[in-house]
């Protein structure tokens, strides 16, 4: 029963892949070796498509792999398997956090991890920046976008749509 296999394999990935979507990639290469669903070369294309379509990368990869392996039901089985461990663990933690929010131990842990998460976001941003800002033109656009975002505070969706249109108009990244 391929759907159960897909569900189980992606449940495992959801349980052991800790962190961002890219950490699921090595697990997918393992799947490519064990099952006939897709090979390593397909996987490279699948990553490219997942990165250039809306939605979190990890979810896109699971949906794509499931779809490749067994169509629509396969996509659903893989995606459901991927998110189930997260949902269960976070539901339990959420209750605990609500209960112990004012506990001094919990407060000091949170006090310590907030600066860490800022450092992590900074590094994730730097990774995107390396791909985004490649020459003077893109650097100039970056400054303009940053100024606009900082001073006008419109919805991020507005800037994303404008940037896509500008990218096409200026043929960026050619």
């Amino acid at each position: 029963m391929i759907y159960l296999v897909l569900f189980f394999e992606f449940f495992k990935i959801g349980l052991f892949a800790i962190g961002g979507g890219l950490v699921t990639v090595p697990f997918l290469f393992d799947l490519a070796e064990v099952y006939p669903w897709f090979d390593a070369k397909d996987l490279a294309d699948m990553i490219a498509v997942s990165e250039s379509t809306p939605g979190p990368l990890g979810v896109n990869m699971a949906t794509y792999s499931g779809f490749r392996a067994a169509g629509v039901a396969g996509a659903l089985a893989a995606t459901f398997g991927l998110v189930l461990p997260s949902v269960v663990v976070i539901m339990m933690l959420s209750k605990l956090l609500k209960k112990f929010r004012d506990n001094p131990m919990v407060c000091s842990v949170l006090y310590g991890i907030r600066p860490a998460v800022i450092a992590l976001i900074l590094f994730a941003g730097a990774e995107v920046a390396k791909l985004a800002v490649t020459d003077w033109e893109t650097a100039g656009l970056f400054v303009v976008f940053f100024a606009a975002i900082h001073f006008y505070k419109r919805s991020p969706i507005f800037y994303i749509i404008v940037s896509a249109a500008l990218g096409i108009a200026l043929k960026l990244g050619q």
């Binding site: 250039s52 800022i118 976001i121 900074l122 994730a124 941003g125 995107v128 920046a129 791909l131 985004a132 800002v133 893109t138 656009l141 970056f142 976008f145 940053f146 975002i149 900082h150 991020p156 800037y159 994303i160 404008v162 940037s163 896509a164 249109a165 500008l166 990218g167 096409i168 200026l170 043929k171 960026l172 990244g173 050619q174």
Partner: peptide
């Protein structure tokens, strides 16, 4: 092209959020 543009906006948005 569109994605090259979107990446720039996403970088700027992340910086502003930071």
């Amino acid at each position: 092209y569109a994605f090259a543009g979107i990446r720039i906006a996403v970088t700027a948005l992340i910086l502003d959020t930071l």
